[in-house]
Amino acid sequence: MRDRLIFTGQFLFTLLVAAFLVVPTALSITAGVTTNYFRGIQSGLTLQWVAQVWDLYADTIGLSFLIAFATLAVTLLAGVPAAYALHVRGGQLSRLVEEIITLPIAIPGLALALALLLTYGGFGAFRRSWLFILAGHVVFTMPFMVRSVMAIFASVDIKTLDEGAASLGASPWRRFRDVIVPNAVPGILAGSLMVVTLSLGEFNLTWMLHTPLTKTLPIGLADSYASMRLEVASAYTLIFFIMIIPLLVAMQMFAERELTR
């Protein structure tokens, strides 16, 4: 009886906390498809706000995806070999390099952006192009890629596999292609999802680095919050949700598959 009471209490509390988080989300989403939010849902449902957002901000969405996948490409091309080198080499120096790569997680995005602006702000063409935002995103997401790949390297003892392949005559490049990458796939996938998700949602850094012509999705979102009617901003949120939720679910599924292996 007492156990039952405790369970019911905990259950209700959990529901309450969940509601606290979910209700605003649901409200925001409904606001995006309501004709007039101040008159409530009885004013009718509409997709006109979504369409309006698409008209106004489609280019920010496009740019966000361009930057997210470019960030992914760079973190893959630089991050996976870097993780391999750091893992195989080991020692003090590798740990130091790893720490430096990880640093951007701890430093506020604004500070990172300021440093980038101070250093490269003078290069006008670079400063004005989307590549400037790409650079910021790469700095910010690289640790997530390197870390998740290094974690998988440690769990499959990639150093010995590498030595095994070397003893059979494989050059460093063949080892990387035939043995290292195929056995690091789960870590590479997890890292990739993380990088894409983080890049799509990144605001702090991007807000400092963007120009009126290089707005990403979250910047557009802030823009619409500040200057548009509430329904438009909410419709924008809805679009963002639709894009980001599948990525988060995929990430979660990978994490679970890794745990059950």
Partner: peptide, 11 residues
Amino acid sequence: MVFQSYALFPN
């Protein structure tokens, strides 16, 4: 070379 952990390729 035969390694203590065998170093067989899981892939």
